[in-house]
Structure formats: structure tokens, C-alpha cells
């Protein structure tokens, strides 16, 4: 009986302590990971999935060509809009990053902005910047290797060799194949 009362008291105290602990002892701030949305939850994801689906539905004979054309137009529009919104967001983030005026502003916002910028970087690379043969234009203007696949980058500006047509490296001054000096 006594044992039971002690056990009951323990249960009660443990429960109350556990529930009220955040109020009594706020403790150290917790690290929380904010996950990106599921692709299916973003307008872009929904539009892309819909585009894939109508492709499949046409292939299985469920969509007539006329309907397919209509839907294709509709979802392409939606997807483009989503992509534009995405790059606009990235632009905004870059602007925020460029102007550090806020002086030690919210770390959180800065990190988020930087991450967003990086995420959309591949698609909003500065024109004339380096490009990876596999992954397309890269955002880092001074990169030599692709940060995505590790392949060597070539500058869009350098282009092919005037002598033999071989691809020139980003900073090459002479062609590795024929020795012709690269156009400055």
C-alpha cells in the first residue's frame, strides 16, 4: 500500500515536472530544422506533376489530342508562372544579401535568403557566367568546377578555339589542342 502511494506520487510529480518544465526552466533554445515543402505542395510541383500526368494520360489514350493541347497550355503557363515567382524570390533574396545595411540583421532571414538564392541559382545564373556541360550555367562567377557534379566548367565567354574549334578552358590563354592563342 505504501509502495503504491509512493509510486502514485512519483507518477504525479514526474508528469507535472515534465509538462511544466518549459515554463519553469526555459533552458537553451532548441535547434529546429525547417524543412522545405514537399514538391507536391508547391505551385511549381503541382504544375510539373500535372504536366507529367497529362503526358501519361495521353499515352494511355485517356486524353484526346485537343484536350491534351489545352491542358498542356494551361499547365505550362502555371509552371512558368511558378518558375518566375521562384526566380523573383531569389532576386529579392540576393538584393537583401547585397545590402547588409541592416547591420547584423536577423541571421535566420539571411541564411534563408542565401539558401533560397543558392537553390534557384542554377536557373538564374548571371548571363555570361561559367556553365557546366552537364548542369548548365553556374551562379558562382569565378568557379572552375561545377559545384553540382564536379565537372570542369567552361566560361560562356571563352567559347571554342578560333583555330580548331575545340572547347577552351575557362581561363585558357592558348588552345590545348592546336596552340592558337585564345581571343582575349
Amino acid at each position: 500500500m505504501t509502495l503504491e502511494i509512493v509510486a502514485a506520487a512519483l507518477v504525479g510529480v514526474a508528469a507535472v515536472w515534465w509538462v511544466l518544465q518549459p515554463l519553469i526552466a526555459p533552458g537553451t533554445p532548441r535547434m529546429t530544422v525547417i524543412e522545405p515543402l514537399d514538391p507536391e505542395e508547391t505551385p511549381k510541383g503541382v504544375a510539373l506533376a500535372a504536366l507529367k500526368e497529362i503526358e501519361f494520360d495521353r499515352e494511355t489514350g485517356k486524353l484526346s489530342n485537343e484536350d491534351y493541347a489545352f491542358l498542356k497550355g494551361k499547365y505550362t503557363g502555371a509552371a512558368l508562372e511558378a518558375l518566375r515567382a521562384e526566380s523573383a524570390e531569389a532576386e529579392e533574396a540576393r538584393a537583401a544579401e547585397a545590402g547588409p545595411g541592416s547591420g547584423g540583421g536577423d541571421v535566420e532571414i539571411m541564411i534563408a535568403a542565401r539558401v533560397r538564392a543558392l537553390r534557384s541559382a542554377a536557373i538564374s545564373a548571371p548571363p555570361g557566367g561559367p556553365a557546366c556541360p552537364a548542369c548548365g550555367p553556374r551562379p558562382e562567377s569565378d568557379a572552375e568546377f561545377c559545384s553540382s557534379c564536379g565537372d570542369r566548367l567552361h566560361s560562356a565567354a571563352s567559347g571554342p578555339c578560333a583555330g580548331c574549334g575545340a572547347e577552351l578552358g575557362a581561363d585558357s590563354r592558348f588552345c590545348a589542342q592546336c596552340g592558337t592563342a585564345a581571343a582575349a
Binding site: R30, T32, V33, I34, E35, D106, E108, V115
Partner: peptide, 12 residues
């Protein structure tokens, strides 16, 4: 993974 953002909850 590149899209994870880390924030300090309760710090602010």
C-alpha cells in the same frame, strides 16, 4: 538537402 534552413528557435 541544400534547401534545409537552420533557425534558432527561442533565441529571439
Amino acid at each position: 538537402q541544400g534547401g534545409y534552413a537552420v533557425s534558432l528557435v527561442g533565441a529571439g
